[in-house]
Design a protein around this nucleic acid. Structure first.
Length: 272
DNA sequence: GTAAACCTGGCA
DNA sequence: TGCCAGGTTTAC
């Protein structure tokens, strides 16, 4: 489900509601997430105050008053919801509930359990260590950067953009959209990209992500933000999951194929 | 590099 | 019944 725009949308929706709140109690129903919840998870969170929120790639980070960070990844099907005091719903897959001092609770729900949560020391988390530049905030993500990658890999461009070590936060929906906007087929090999195309990819990445955040993410099957609202970017999708439909630019039928084990969508006329 | 694995739900 | 899904890691 959630890529950079969805996680950023969750962060923005939660920030004003959770910053300053104290964690009163942590209730765990299932520990066997993608990586099991550590035995001291409850103890490290209980009693802490949330001092800020941030995001790195697809990780939501909640800063705690002891200097540690509560790290949340939602995998494919995860939700992270702030529920008001009078909301007794448990959801069918609410694996963790964190009670705050204003009677609200933060609920981690994830049917497929591809998500994970950890409390880490900033800078000591292996999961964050190898992640590439943030496409919206980091000038290191540039045409020159992609040009420098051309010589080091023969992989296809779609796999490269989805590689979190190359650039942070992109997933299958948005890479399809980015490649369409840049006019490049998902199957093009990196060494064959021109300098202009590398520039176009960086520009398209920033455009698509900015648009998607403005529309508060894509709710294609089940994404909700931190207070249960769907996003609306699914209505603005150009190619993702639109096989057979008309290209918004030239009306040619959008085609689908599989690249790197993931469904890919492109316009054979607009993308070369 | 490529494929399979993790897990559940939804849909044809 | 079988296939597909917004992600990531691990194994040939």
């Amino acid at each position: 489900m959630p890529e950079l725009p969805e996680i950023e949308t969750i962060r923005r929706s939660l920030d004003p509601l959770v910053v300053g709140r104290r964690i009163e109690r942590v209730r765990v129903r299932r520990r066997d997430l993608r990586s099991p919840l550590p035995p001291d998870f409850e103890a490290t969170l209980s009693g802490r105050r949330i001092t800020g929120t941030s995001r790195r790639a697809k990780y939501l980070l909640l800063a705690l008053d002891d200097g540690k960070q509560w790290l949340v990844h939602l995998g494919m099907s995860g939700r992270f919801l702030r529920l008001a005091a009078d909301d007794a719903s448990t959801g069918s897959h609410e694996h963790v509930a964190v009670d705050l001092d204003d009677e609200s609770r933060l609920a981690f729900r994830d049917p497929r359990r591809f998500g994970l949560m950890l409390v880490v020391n900033p800078g000591e988390c292996g999961l964050l260590a190898g992640i590439g530049p943030e496409p919206l905030d980091d000038a290191d993500f540039s045409g020159a950067y992609l040009v420098s990658l051309r010589a080091r890999t023969s992989r296809v461009v779609k796999e490269v953009l989805m590689d979190q070590r190359v650039v942070a936060g992109l997933g299958n929906i948005y890479v399809n959209e980015i490649l369409f906007l840049a006019g490049i087929r998902p199957t093009r090999r990196m060494p064959r990209l021109t300098r202009l195309e590398c520039d176009a990819l960086v520009s398209a990445t920033r455009t698509i992500l900015t648009e998607a955040i403005e529309h508060r993410g894509s709710s294609i099957s089940d994404f909700l933000d931190g207070i249960g609202r769907p996003g609306s970017y699914q209505w603005r999708r150009r190619v993702y999951d639109r096989a057979g439909e008309a290209c918004p630019s030239c009306s040619h039928a959008i085609r689908s194929t599989v690249v790197g084990q993931r469904s890919s969508f492109f316009c054979p006329r607009c993308q070369r």
